[in-house]
Amino acid sequence: MDLRRDIFQAIADPTRRAIITLLVAHAMTPGAIAANFDSTRQTISRHIQILAECELLTQQQNGREIYYHLNPQKMKIIADFIEPFRSMWDERFNKLETIMRQYKTKK
């Protein structure tokens, strides 16, 4: 298991978020992705590589071209990332309620 890259670090970058947004519509070749940006093709390739290393993108060879797709499983992790935070507080507050109800009856 390679945890070298953090998917949240990956999406912290505005260019990488823009690449993800582009790929929501359909799979694209690196050239087609780069055509949407003012940065050099090399810079965009680097961003694509980081997203691919985080498994946010998957590659598909189609003849001579490589197409990049979004990986829905990994995207779901991002969509759900607020849930662990919420359940952490929910557990704390449930505890608070239990403690204070006992406190009330003790009085």
């Binding site: 507080w89 929910d90 309620e97 204070m100 406190y103 009330k104």
Partner: peptide
Amino acid sequence: REFDLPVELLFKA
């Protein structure tokens, strides 16, 4: 979050 507790007890917590 809403609690089944009077506000005084919530504040005490």
